[in-house]
Design a protein around this nucleic acid. Structure first.
Lengths: 127, 127, 127, 127
DNA sequence: GTGGTCTAGACCACC
DNA sequence: GTGGTCTAGACCACT
């Protein structure tokens, strides 16, 4: 899997990294049980500090998307991903809401938004 | 219009304020040409720092959503809102993409996402 | 409140710090809404790195025992502490179980264990 | 006796192993004088490293819970378990203290804690 | 001045 | 070799 980071971005590097790994899992590029690179090797590969990689991994672990074994390293949760719960849905809503508001403000129609969403969805999802 | 800020949120206050004003305009609660409170009065009303309000206003001005006159004060852009351009659409995409990815990862279907979007859209838009 | 750290201990410093703050809240020495020292000042006071203090604070925040505001600093959760839920009870059980087992092995009676627990309880709780 | 290890746990494997053997002795499943599997066979049985089993055994030997003979193999101390001394009690206290503190913080009463302790005690002890 | 982020470099526990 | 912990020092965003 290819990781692309924008060092000029306003988003913290660890957030970008987290997002990319999430997308990797969502797309099927990373299968449950599959191993991820070690903190150190990934850090050196993409030229960032190991703590930054570690922070991304810790966040993914917190969400139960990956497992971190002290010695064996890091693997995608072999039991599959946790289903969306109420908390998750609420967080999604609160994050997407301002985007929709600004879209409305600039004259984007509901249909156009749905189309954009569908396009991104299809881009990510393997099938 | 009522401004609700969550001082515990991870979002900077100026961002929350910006979002709320955008939603106010999108919903029609704030009409083009309508006056907004002065930096000073708004800051004092909601109990935050002058600079914070000012930063929010500057961001809105940058997007051409509002006009700031030295004497006449602050008004919603009387000529209406700028239409969505390519740059705007790109930004929207890059912001919504990780949300969709995480939704896919947790088993949310495209239809469910669209429904959520439609619900939020209807909540904001006056009709 | 006085913080005592044992740099020779097998417990990570941030764990010791976390425990001490928890005990401070439990004992009433730190009341809900009360401010805690800033990351930097506490670090310098007890002579450790600010990242170590930060890690302790982040853990307490994760449990909703404290709130961290970007600028205002750190305060004990003003709404009081979260009640014990199933997850918490399970964790407690799994942590206390090996201690009880070793106590049994060395001939400590149930009554003696309860007495020890009561003594510690009274030591901490203000009442 | 059945050994159950959680490879995902934050606890080192040797600690889990140590705990399980201690609980085995405490419960009477392992009687004084009874033989334990050799380092080699236990390691192969549960699929872990030799060194890990060895470390667990060394710790148990240090506490005088087991004896390790070069030829005869490993046995539960035939003279019975050492009684709780001051050092042991102190260690127990310092380990249980943060658990009690967090319980208090989350509103667990002394009685509830004692009940939990009694329940675990009865679970382990044969009666 | 506050916390957030990132880097660099070190030692340790575990297996 | 793996992740866990700790330190030191830097810059930034926010108020």
């Amino acid at each position: 899997m290819i990781i692309e980071l924008d060092m000029q971005s306003e988003l913290p590097i660890y957030t970008q990294l987290t997002n990319q790994i999430i997308e990797g899992i969502a797309s099927g590029a990373l299968a449950p049980g599959e191993a991820l690179p070690s903190v150190r090797s990934l850090a050196s590969d993409i030229g960032i500090n190991l703590h930054t990689v570690n922070k991304a991994y810790q966040l993914l672990k917190q969400e139960d998307y990956i497992h971190i074994h002290r010695q064996k390293g890091v693997v995608v949760n072999p039991n599959g991903m946790p289903a969306a719960d109420q908390e998750f849905t609420n967080k999604q809503c609160s994050q997407i809401r301002p985007l929709i508001a600004e879209g409305i403000l600039r004259g984007v129609t509901l249909q156009e938004m749905k189309d954009m969403m569908e396009q991104i969805y299809d881009e990510i999802k393997p099938m």
